[in-house]
Amino acid sequence: MSDPLPREDAPRIPELMEELHDLTCNLRSALERFRFDARLNDLAEKEMPDARQRLSHVLKLTDEAAHRTLDLVEQSCPPAERTAREAAELAESWTRFRARNISVEEFRALLTRMDSFLACARTDSDTVRANLAQVLLAQGYQDLTGQIIRGVMTLVSEVETTLAELTRLARGEPATDASLAPAGEGRRDVGPVVPGVNPQVAVVSDQQGVDDLLSDLGM
């Protein structure tokens, strides 16, 4: 058992208790600060550069999708215009035929042109239709970029929370109950693979990789 305080120190007990309380508060504050400092360090060194890489990939995907769409629209205009032009020219002869105002020679020429138009219109329509299907698929970038942006938004929100907590601690205020996700958690570890951002686990590079893996599994 420890020795009791000498009688002459008894008046200092409240003072000592206050000092002890201050020490405890400082220690808790230092521990909290260390926790946020460590997380901020991790965010600054690893996750912010990753986020920059992710946003750069988003730019690339949107750029590619926009150009792909524009290319397909540009490729679709000539066949669509050709069909419209041919149809307008044929309509003129057709109207005269319906009005019985056409010579035999002109009627024969009309039939030949009609045969050619029908074959051409079919090919051109198929081309435009195929291009439209590609335009449709090109819009898939919105899903992929949306998932990446959502992940970066989670990160930004975490940086905001961490900085707010550090500011609070610097002012000598107690930390709040703000929770910190460990590195790589939350929605940032899901979603599309981003070139340059190393995933923590093995990924397949394309559909063939998926098919090979499933084949190995007996599917």
Binding site: A202, L213, L217
Partner: peptide, 21 residues
């Protein structure tokens, strides 16, 4: 968009019939 090997295996084990990335 999930292309992690372990996820594809997990989906296969859960009984998926096909997997497209």
């Amino acid at each position: 968009a999930e292309a992690k090997r372990e996820q594809i295996v997990e989906a296969a084990q859960a009984g998926v019939n096909g997997y497209v990335i």
